[in-house]
C-alpha cells in the first residue's frame, strides 16, 4: 500500500494529518480510518486530533497507545469515564465488558447514560460513543458478566485491564484472572465523597490484601451512594495509570493505595 503512504504524506501539514484528510484518504482507498492512523503514526505523522498531547506524548508514544489493547470491565460510573478518556487518548483497541442495561438511577453520574438510552445495553452505548468521538478506535463489546470461569477468554489479548466494577466479589475474581494471564490491573473504587486507586502487577495480590476477607460484602457506597464528581476523578487517575503502564512512564501506584477524600480534600497513601 505504498500509494496510501504517499497519499498520507501529501496531506501532512506541520507534521500532522487532519481528520478530514484521514477520513478522505480512508474512503479513497477503501480502508479504515484506523488503518490510515497506523500508517501515519508509523511514519512519524501525528493525527491532528492528538496535537494537544504532543508536548507530553510524542508520535512514538502515540503509536504505542494506538497499538495497545486495554480491557475495561464495567461500563458504569467509573467505566464510562474510563472508556471516554482511553478513546480520546488514542488507545487503538478497547474491550468493554458489562452485562447490564442503563437504568434511571445511573443518570446522576454515569457519563454514557442518557434518558433516551434507558433500557439499552451499556456496552452497546459505549461502542456507539467511541465511534462518535474517535472512529479510529476498535471496540470489542462483551455483554456478559466477567467471572473466573470466562475471564481468561474475555481478557485474552489485552495488555492492561481496568476495573470499573461495582462489587467486591467480582473484583476478586477479576484479580485472579489477571494474575493467571499475568496482566496489570488498575483498580478503582468509589463511595460518596471518597475513592481509591491502586495498580496491581502480576503476583502482587493487592486486591486480596485490600478485600480478601470481604468477599461477599458491600462497601459503604450502599449507604453513601455516588455523586457525579467522584467517578470522573477516580476514573481519571486510573487512566493516568494505564497510560504510565503502557508507556513505561513515571511511578505507577504499585503496592500503594491512593485514597482521595473530597469532603476534607485529603489524599492519603497507604502501603498494600
Amino acid at each position: 500500500m505504498s500509494e496510501v503512504r504517499a497519499a498520507v504524506e501529501r496531506c501532512v501539514v506541520d507534521g500532522m494529518l487532519s481528520w478530514s484528510d484521514q477520513l478522505t484518504t480512508a474512503q479513497t482507498f477503501g480502508v479504515s480510518v484506523a488503518y490510515i492512523e497506523a500508517v501515519a503514526l508509523e511514519r512519524g505523522i501525528l493525527p491532528a486530533r492528538y496535537q494537544r498531547n504532543r508536548n507530553m506524548l510524542n508520535c512514538r508514544d502515540q503509536l504505542c497507545l494506538f497499538s495497545s489493547h486495554v480491557a475495561v470491565v464495567g461500563c458504569g460510573g467509573l467505566g464510562g469515564y474510563i472508556i471516554e478518556e482511553l478513546a480520546r487518548l488514542g488507545i487503538g483497541h478497547l474491550t468493554v465488558i458489562d452485562p447490564d442495561i442503563f437504568e434511571e438511577h445511573n443518570l446522576n453520574r454515569q457519563l454514557l447514560s442518557t434518558p433516551a438510552d434507558l433500557g439499552l445495553d451499556k456496552v452497546a452505548v459505549a461502542v456507539r460513543r467511541v465511534a462518535e468521538i474517535n472512529p479510529a478506535v476498535t471496540v470489542t463489546p462483551v455483554v456478559k458478566a466477567l467471572s473466573r470461569r470466562n475471564g481468561c477468554g474475555l481478557l485474552a489479548g489485552a495488555q492492561v485491564v481496568v476495573d470499573g466494577l461495582d462489587n467486591i466479589e467480582t473484583r476478586l475474581e477479576l484479580s485472579e484472572v489477571c494474575d493467571t494471564l499475568e496482566l496489570p490491573l488498575v483498580h478503582g473504587a468509589i463511595a460518596g465523597w471518597y475513592g481509591h486507586v491502586t495498580t496491581q502487577m502480576p503476583g502482587d495480590k493487592s486486591l486480596h490484601t485490600l478485600y480478601g476477607r470481604k468477599c461477599h460484602q458491600k462497601g459503604v457506597e450502599g449507604s453513601l451512594g455516588n455523586p457525579s464528581f467522584t467517578p470522573s476523578l477516580i476514573a481519571s487517575v486510573q487512566v493516568a495509570e494505564v497510560t504510565k503502564i503502557l508507556l513505561n512512564y513515571g511511578e505507577p501506584l504499585r503496592h500503594r493505595l491512593f485514597t482521595i477524600d473530597l469532603l476534607d480534600m485529603e489524599c492519603v497513601e497507604t502501603p498494600l
Binding site: 460510573g77 467505566g79 461495582d166 478503582g188 463511595a191 462497601g219 459503604v220 497507604t270
Partner: peptide, 10 residues
C-alpha cells in the same frame, strides 16, 4: 491505629 471504611462502588 488507622481505620478506613470498605469502599467498593463503581
Amino acid at each position: 491505629v488507622s481505620i478506613f471504611p470498605l469502599v467498593g462502588g463503581g
